[in-house]
Simulated assay, not measured.
Amino acid sequence: MGCGDIGRRVGRLYQNEGVKAIGWVRGEESLRLGLEQGLAMRKGDVDQGSFFPIFALDEALVYWFMPPQPTGETDDRIRRFLKGVDAAPQRVVLISTTGVYGDCEGRWIDESEPLKPAAARAKRRADAENTVQEWAARFGGEIVILRVPGIYAPDRLPLERLQRGEPVLRAEEAPWTNRIHADDLALICKRAMEAAPAGAVYNATDGHPSTMTDYFNTVADYAGLPRPPQVSMEEAQMSMSAGMLSYLQESRRIRNDKLLTELGIRLQYPSLAAGLGMLEGQDSD
């Protein structure tokens, strides 16, 4: 559900095993890309109450990758979906966000950290977590929650922003951020579906955070572009979008020990430099 880039990557893992995967989308471009990959695609708009027939989801394994609607503090899409399908799915793997932790002032945290989402987008994701947990308790379905940070891959980098020369925060003021390579996230999703205990929650990060300024500098170096200019927080408040400023007001470093040990995940790309091919021979140890 919400078969965009990550959905297609997960679908490819199943295709490689000869297993049928169905992608649900609402946009023509996503539909086209899924069909070109050879996935069985369906098109519909959950906002308009459009679902799979319930019989088609009986005992299904559902990946919920669909983001919440862009406004409000509840995830009305997943609420509407689960109400429509009742007890049909066997297991749901939900992509949430590490934003549900709110600002941790740069501390190292793990899955035991209390949720304190501040931004509306994070509150919607926290609501989605609560919604699937309530659904599982009511119907006996299984859920796994993956709290995901920024997703990157060589084909999904902020190159246009760098080409425009948009500024970043001064290095000494920049918050800690976390990330995961898109291919590693796809592997994590599939492993969570297959092996995670019901009700489990994992931080799906690479465990190697850096500051947001470091991130943009590394991507610029990788792409052969000039590093972005740096501004103070005071200057940023006058020149950056409200969305970007909201990210700059939260800082956390997130552990992934539980992911690696409990699911036995071995990351292909355990750092940004490794994910961009800027290091040779680095592994997840």
Rank of each mutant, 00 (worst) to 15 (best):
G4R: 11
G4N: 11
I6Y: 03
G7S: 07
G7P: 09
N16P: 01
K20I: 14
A21Q: 02
A21M: 05
W24C: 03
V25W: 10
G27K: 15
S30I: 09
S30A: 15
G34D: 01
A40E: 15
R42V: 13
R42W: 13
K43F: 03
P53K: 09
A56N: 13
L57F: 06
D58E: 15
L61E: 15
V62I: 11
P67Y: 07
P68S: 10
P68I: 09
I78N: 02
F81C: 00
A87I: 09
A88Q: 09
V93W: 00
S96A: 14
V100N: 02
G102H: 02
D103Y: 04
C104N: 12
D110I: 02
P117M: 09
P117A: 10
K123V: 07
K123I: 12
A126F: 10
A126S: 11
Q133D: 12
A136G: 14
A137G: 13
I143Q: 03
V144C: 13
Y152L: 11
R156I: 10
P158K: 03
E160A: 15
R161L: 06
V168D: 03
L169G: 09
D184I: 07
I188A: 04
C189V: 15
C189N: 08
K190E: 11
A195G: 01
G199D: 11
A200F: 05
Y202D: 01
T205R: 00
H208F: 10
M212A: 13
T213G: 00
Y215K: 07
F216H: 06
V219N: 03
V219R: 00
D221T: 10
G224Y: 07
G224I: 13
E234D: 14
E235V: 11
A236D: 04
M238I: 10
M244Q: 14
L248M: 11
Q249T: 13
R253W: 03
D257K: 12
D257I: 04
D257C: 06
L260P: 03
T261Y: 11
L263M: 02
L267E: 04
P270S: 04
L272R: 00
A273V: 08
G275F: 07
L276D: 07
